[in-house]
């Protein structure tokens, strides 16, 4: 009897803990899943202005400009079909270049400019953020990766992405 009770307790305790965790996960998923869109997908979608999303593609050559405050930058992200203007206040990551892949997280502004709060570019300059690669494949603009597919590095536990900081 005793052993059975103990096991029951154990099982009930485990179920309760799992239940709480599942509840937390589901409610957090509701608000905190951030979807990724390419500029083409974004043009076809209605995005609520307060929804956090990620966008990505190539930084259009010659599109990078700085505003007069010296820290707000504007650039265009393109999947070679459509392009999207992005505004970001902050220091761009070390690997940010025109013509290279980029992912930005933030919200659509009311003026149609994407307000990025975070700009991500990865470790390796030859490496393409995976969402960008897939988006380019989808739009038929994929030209293949130059140096294999895995990002370089012994990032065996350290964070991989070199991201621009959150504002």
């Amino acid at each position: 009897m005793k052993r059975k009770h103990k096991r029951l307790m154990f099982v009930l305790g485990g179920m309760a803990a799992l239940g709480i965790a599942a509840g937390l996960v589901v409610s957090a998923f509701d608000e905190n899943l951030v979807f990724f869109f390419s500029p083409t997908e974004l043009a076809a979608k209605e995005i609520k202005p307060d929804q956090r999303i990620r966008i990505g593609g190539l930084v259009e050559a010659g599109s990078l400009t700085k505003e007069t405050d010296g820290v707000t930058v504007r650039f265009s992200v393109t999947d070679n079909t459509k392009s999207l203007a992005v505004r970001y206040k902050g220091i761009l990551p070390d690997l940010f270049r025109e013509g290279q892949g980029v992912v930005a997280e933030g919200r659509m502004g009311t003026d149609g400019v994407f307000e990025a709060s975070e700009v991500l570019a990865k470790h390796d300059e030859n490496y393409m953020p995976r969402e960008v690669a897939d988006a380019l494949k989808k739009s038929g603009e994929w030209k293949g990766e130059k140096h294999g597919d895995a990002p370089a590095g012994a990032n065996s536990g350290a964070p991989a992405p070199t991201e621009g900081a959150t504002q």
């Binding site: 709480i20 965790a21 937390l24 996960v25 409610s27 957090a28 998923f29 608000e31 905190n32 899943l33 951030v34 979807f35 990724f36 869109f37 990620r54 997280e105 969402e131 897939d134």
Partner: peptide, 19 residues
């Protein structure tokens, strides 16, 4: 299905941290 989502720090703040 090829959907791209990311799960960021707010998710873990709301699930892992309270536990």
């Amino acid at each position: 299905d090829g959907s791209k989502v990311s799960v960021g720090p707010p998710f873990f703040d709301k699930t892992f941290v309270p536990l």
